[in-house]
């Protein structure tokens, strides 16, 4: 029983991020509205970022900013700080994510102007005419 409990605590974070990833992928594939597809893309992206950051967590570790002892000596122990490398990768990925979202919304506005709708089946009907 105890081992099963430890197994749950050790893995539930990955499970949650994978469930979010598949919710986002389902939104991108199965939804008919293009705006819903874009929101699915945002969820998909955030799920991957959460997976990345959860790799860098350590037990008993604090935020990756060097702390100082009262005599101004820095505490340079790798086990005292969380892994900073995933944070850096994700920091740039978030800002690129909002740029991608902006481009997607601009294309969405253009589709609305040309076809007059953003429902996928209506757009296909309009293109066949």
């Amino acid at each position: 029983m105890d081992e099963f409990f430890f197994f749950i605590v050790a893995k539930y974070n990955y499970w949650a991020s994978l469930i979010l990833l598949f919710i986002g992928l389902y939104g991108m594939i199965a939804k008919n509205n293009l705006m819903k597809k874009i929101i699915g893309m945002v969820i998909f992206q955030t799920a991957i970022l959460i997976f990345f950051v959860s790799i860098g967590v350590k037990w008993g570790a604090s935020v990756p900013i060097i702390r100082f002892f009262p005599d101004k000596q820095p505490l340079l122990d790798a086990t005292a700080y969380a892994n900073p490398l995933p944070h850096v990768l994700i920091l740039t990925a978030i800002v690129v994510g909002v740029a991608v979202l902006g481009v997607a919304l601009a294309i969405l506005q253009n589709i609305q102007r040309i076809h007059g709708t953003i429902e996928e089946d209506e757009i296909l009907e309009d293109m066949r005419k």
């Binding site: 950051v53 860098g56 967590v57 969380a82 995933p86 944070h87 800002v95 994510g97």
Partner: peptide
């Protein structure tokens, strides 16, 4: 998860600017 820089960016970008541009569209 002790990723304060990432949380700060997400609070500024994801919760503010993304929502505003989605509502604007």
């Amino acid at each position: 998860m002790m990723a304060v820089d990432v949380a700060f960016t997400e609070a500024a970008v994801g919760a503010a600017v993304s929502t505003v541009i989605i509502v604007a569209t």
